[in-house]
Design a binder for these strands. Structure first.
Lengths: 143, 143
DNA sequence: TATAAACTTAGAGTAAACTCTAAGGTCAAG
DNA sequence: CTTGACCTTAGAGTTTACTCTAAGTTTATA
């Protein structure tokens, strides 16, 4: 049985985070000492690791709560329940990626358009591009 | 001279957002009526568009404030001042992209590993992968 | 026994960028 | 003159995921 600090160092979470997760229904101590100390079993450790893994994959705390509710009662859930959540998250991630790729492209174009020297910004092409209000339209820069 | 609602519909911002930007030093009404109504000039419109463009490119509200301070006093700033901000933002964006790409990869692998049918999740490979606590390591799935 | 490290709780704070509310004032049209 | 659309302010609320604080308790070690 591990105390919260031990679970923390074992999982790489902080004790604060573990308590936060408890508040959100993700990790519960199997036992409490008389003094109220949390004590975690090996199964708790595995659950904490599941949580950490799922968070790293991009699932929100709420998603993880849902995944855990499936996890403790697998036989009453289908693979579809799981893939649905996963698919939604993937769509989510893909949306964010394309936003960021478009920012990346624009930023690169902006940087390529300006030497970045110590000369006055009076004619800085980045400033001009932002002023042109079509800097978003990366196309407008590719001639 | 435009009222805030007119500037809003012209720029695609909301009046709320414009006031929020004002509080943050991004957009100021050139004039106020006796009753306190904000009135915006064409130059204000251009500034609001600059702000919107810069935000879309990924610059934070604080970044935009800095860019605007350069914009109004270009001769006392260098191109480097501008490229520095832009470069930092690009690094930022690139970091986020690689995080998201790694999530994307893992999510895709998870989805490919599970049919997502209506059968019980008892042996759902996604759940198993998350339990294996190395789902992060996409490699572990590529056989 | 004394001290330090670790634990407890409730609740506040942080970050970023809005978004909304309440309570009231202004203005053009009919 | 009334209605409705639009404007004002200060300030609170939203979202997500922590992160920290204060004040106090417990436990292991020297």
């Amino acid at each position: 049985m591990l105390k919260i600090g031990e679970l923390a160092s074992k999982t790489g979470l902080t004790a604060h985070t573990i308590r936060f997760y408890e508040k959100n229904g993700l990790i519960n101590a199997s036992e409490r000492s008389d003094a109220g100390y949390r004590y975690y079993t090996e199964a708790d450790v595995r659950q904490a690791e599941f949580v950490k893994t799922a968070r790293k994959v991009g699932f929100s705390v709420d998603d993880v709560a849902t995944l855990l509710s499936i996890r403790v009662d697998k036989s009453n859930h289908t693979c579809q329940d799981v893939t649905d959540i996963t698919q939604r998250k993937l769509i989510d991630v893909n949306e964010k990626i394309s936003e960021l790729l478009s920012m990346q492209q624009t930023l690169e174009i902006l940087l390529n358009s300006c030497g970045g020297g110590l000369e006055s910004a009076t004619h800085c092409s980045i400033m001009e591009a932002l002023d042109a209000s079509n800097a978003l339209n990366a196309r407008s820069f590719v001639q």
